[in-house]
Design a protein around this nucleic acid. Structure first.
Length: 426
RNA sequence: GGGGAGGUACCAGAGCGGUCAAAUGGGACGGACUGUAAAUCCGUUGCUUCGGCUACGAAGGUUCGAAUCCUUCUCUCCCCA
């Protein structure tokens, strides 16, 4: 199966320039995707693009990952309502390095079609303004640039955009030219919001060197209910285990709705069509077992965080959501307990405080920050939404003392069903 | 520069002298039901030592009493130049 067919059955393909498929069928081709260094870690929203590159490489092509050290200084106006703050250079350097390190986990950097990482800062840093407007600006008309949806939208809604942002598409267009000229990159890929920028590149290549280059975009991932993909209450889901623990990462995927899981498993895993269709069928037959969600979460967690982290996430999940009682903890060593609660927020309180006896609101909102205020703790306790050691707290005045400790040092607090907190005495 | 409209809780948006910690909708959170789904239903959604305290762009003022009236400042939007 060729690259484009692969994307197509997975439901990833959004738009493709005529001739692209034919070009790729000729043999090994080089193509690239750009990543914006707005943070020092990628998040799950970037996974679509990472998977696109992965499929590209698996189909025998040579993938380039471009980190936008230069374009990141400008900011893409595409479909953003406001100009973004410019990042300073040192932050940018740090972000580029972080992203680079993560991308290395997904792509194969060995072999004939080894992946290559480039940073557009390298070819822009010594590119003078006069030189740029003469060699690049000359080939693209303002009319053409203004007709882009991303620009048009900003003009129409009156918010306007700075010259800096307006220039963005030229920079991205030049990136494509540079890679086409020097690395024989004939294809740029990206999310569907990047179509305009990508096409500026192919247009530039055509006008400047009469060359031909191609464009392909992927579907923007949305949840079935129309809300944004990749966000939880606590913010974006990052690939960096420091920002989003493997346990939280695993849970994020496991909690996908049925409809979402069906599309995600196609987009975010490398499982083949037969396997996925078999899982679909199995899931439909017994949806409560959630085989799709489990397979999805497993596949991605292992690829992002490794087998060991996945095993840990499973153990934590089994304990936190399974039917095991709280006594289970007493059978574990300290290290095992720590492992289970890795990624669960924890708080420390002193043994002395606990020995005096402490009421529920004070414990959860005063001594620890399970709740931001006592009022809120009280309300939720009254609403029946708080448990300690897997037992519901009946009233806000329930007293806890050293007798409630598990293994002599832990209390497990639960806000709702899914939010756990570990209180450690010591 | 001239004229007009307006800034209310996470957002949208009522209120226009007391009964307003502020309608309604959305979101968020919690509960029930379930499969750690979806849909639905219910509850909560400023802080509190439960006496109060702090809040309706900011600062003053009028009043027994202000989100509501007055003054100044500030910001946003619209129209004209």
């Amino acid at each position: 199966m060729n690259f484009v067919e692969e994307l197509r059955w997975r439901g990833m393909l959004h738009d493709i320039m005529p001739g692209t498929e034919e070009e790729l069928n000729k043999g090994m081709a080089s193509g690239y995707i750009g990543f914006d260094p707005t943070a020092d870690s990628l998040h799950v929203g970037h996974l679509t693009q990472i998977m696109t590159l992965t499929h590209f490489q698996k189909a025998g092509h040579k993938p380039y990952a471009l980190v936008g050290g230069a374009t990141g200084m400008i900011g893409d106006p595409s479909f953003k309502s406001q100009e973004r703050n410019l990042l300073d250079e040192s932050t940018l350097q740090k972000n580029v390095a972080g992203i680079k390190a993560q991308l290395e986990n997904f792509l194969d950097f060995t072999g004939d079609n080894s992946a290559i990482m480039v940073n557009n800062y390298d070819w822009f840093k010594n590119f003078g303004f006069l030189e740029f407007i003469r060699d690049v600006g000359k080939h693209i008309t303002v009319n053409y640039m203004m007709s882009k949806d991303s620009v048009k939208k900003r003009l129409e809604d009156g918010s306007g955009l700075s010259f800096t942002e307006f220039s963005y598409q030229l920079l991205q267009g030049y990136d494509f030219y540079h890679l086409w000229k020097n690395h024989n990159c004939v294809l740029q890929m990206g999310g569907s919001d990047q179509w305009g920028n990508i096409v500026t590149g192919t247009e530039f290549i055509r006008r400047k060197d009469a060359g031909s280059a191609f464009a392909l975009t992927t579907q923007l991932i949305k949840k079935a209910d129309g809300t944004k993909f990749g966000k939880t209450e606590s913010g974006a889901v990052w690939l960096d285990p420091e920002r989003t623990s493997p346990y939280q990462f695993y849970q994020f995927w496991l909690n996908s709705t049925d409809a979402d899981a069906k599309s995600y498993i196609r987009i975010f895993t490398l499982l083949d069509r037969e396997t996925i269709e078999a899982l679909d069928a199995e899931h439909d037959a017994a949806p409560h077992l959630r085989v799709l969600q489990k397979a999805l979460a497993k596949d991605i967690t292992i690829r992002v965080h490794g087998e060991a982290a996945y095993e840990k996430a499973i153990k934590s999940s089994d304990f936190l959501f399974g039917n095991v009682g709280i006594e289970f903890l007493s059978e574990l060593t300290d290290a095992e307990v720590k492992g289970i609660f890795e990624g669960v927020p924890n708080f420390n309180i002193s043994l002395a405080e606990l020995q005096e006896g402490i009421n529920a609101t004070e414990l959860l909102a005063g001594k620890t920050a399970v709740f931001p205020s006592k009022g809120e703790a009280k309300k939720m306790i009254q609403g029946g939404g708080v448990s300690v050691n897997k037992n519901k707290i009946a009233t806000p005045d329930d007293i806890f003392n050293a007798d409630n400790l598990i293994n002599g040092k832990y209390l497990v607090a639960q806000k709702g069903k899914k939010n756990y907190f570990l209180i450690i005495v010591g």
